[in-house]
Design a protein around this nucleic acid. Structure first.
Lengths: 135, 135, 135, 135
DNA sequence: GTGGTCTAGACCACC
DNA sequence: GTGGTCTAGACCACG
């Protein structure tokens, strides 16, 4: 299973699902034409309310990432990979920008902000060696 | 006035007030022993309901940043500056860490993440020249 | 229902609720993982405004006694029982200490104070037979 | 000066003054006919608002503990000592009773309550050796 | 259904 | 004047 949710995360569960499905598509873990796991199945595996999964899937449909294959399930649309990659980049850029802006606005000077960023980057670099990206 | 709120921000107004009071204390804009602006005064200036300000101030009390001087107002406690600086550092470290971690987990490699960060840092550096910080 | 409030008590209603929830947890009446009665339900049963219950519950959250299970309710955290027992002991010790100290400081000698205490203890012993405590 | 107030005490300052004046009278530190310190003088010595002292003195007048000696000040009435002793006993009995009752109601059993009381009594016994009482 | 936020306004205690 | 408590009710997000 390519999805993991953390209910004590602040981020709504349905949104975590939406994001991770998109990330999986962006990375090619799930390809165009593939079916998403059924609402019931995913709900059981994540031990969450099926309504939550349903809501996530509804969002993915309305964003035209997946489409309903009647009687079969939800399948990834053909242009989805490229779209998900673009969205991923935009999303991360916005979030990074927001956080850094928040740091500046809180009264810290540029040097302090950069120190914080570098420390975190160093910490994470070690954790995620060997990540591959096709962007 | 050292507080500005943005009601269309997603972040609850009372929480924005809590943060900004803490930041003001961390930066020395408000010193130990100083009184916060009165509930009614701040509510009037921000054009919000006094209860919203009161809730923010109650949070500051329960976090022992500020104490009730009965019939006088709320005064900044003696250890508050150091505490607020610590909290600010921790808060930003956590938020930056979370965002960067999300970037790595989304499948991007280290180089891509660093590129995003550097671009945003460059953009914001220009915007916030002249920030001063005690830390 | 394990909560009873007395609005003509001087002690704020929301604080009575906070205390009694903690006492119930300390006594094991409510266990870790259990949900508190919903805000609306408790408000209805106590015939008070839901906001008053909500404020009590918010305090319990910020004291980390209870945590939000989004869309479900508030559940008692795992370490809460031990914490509530400790707090109960400290609270009572402080209150008893304060009152006895006040008695001494008011000029009474030790014998007079002890006489007062013994009389009250005897009176209450009869009233509260069969209390059980984990401590 | 026979009065000390603690503004971070929960107990209103004016009430602390009322109590301590009464205790001083009960103990004979201030006798019938003696004048209380003037409002301005006491306010200066305690570093509090004169209105607060004035309110305390007003209460003492309305309770007929002191009386206005026009142009002179407030003097302790003749029957005050006996009255203050009676009130002191009643007040302490009530407060002790309330606290012990609260302990029982919080779910503790009689043994636990008695243990708390004995511990505090032992602690205070050492602190207040040589208290004398004429009750 | 759940809790959270915000507004509006009454009333109280303290200084 | 100060903050604190409580009520009442609208609106939103989440499951």
């Amino acid at each position: 299973m390519f999805i993991r949710v953390d209910s004590s995360n602040g981020v709504p569960v349905y949104e975590q699902i939406v994001r991770q499905v998109k990330f999986a598509i962006a990375d090619g873990v799930v390809a165009a034409g593939d079916l998403l796991p059924s609402v019931r199945e995913l709900a059981r595996e994540l031990a969450i309310n099926p309504n939550t999964v349903a809501r996530a899937y509804r969002d993915l449909q309305s964003q035209e990432i997946v489409e309903l294959a009647s009687g079969i399930g939800l399948s990834v649309r053909s242009g989805a990979k490229r779209e998900c990659q673009t969205q991923r980049r935009r999303l991360l850029q916005m979030r990074i920008g927001n956080v850094l802006e928040e740091a500046f606005q809180s009264g810290l000077d540029a040097a302090s902000v950069r120190r914080l960023v570098d420390a975190e980057l160093a910490r994470l670099d070690k954790q995620f060696v060997g990540n591959s990206s096709d962007e």
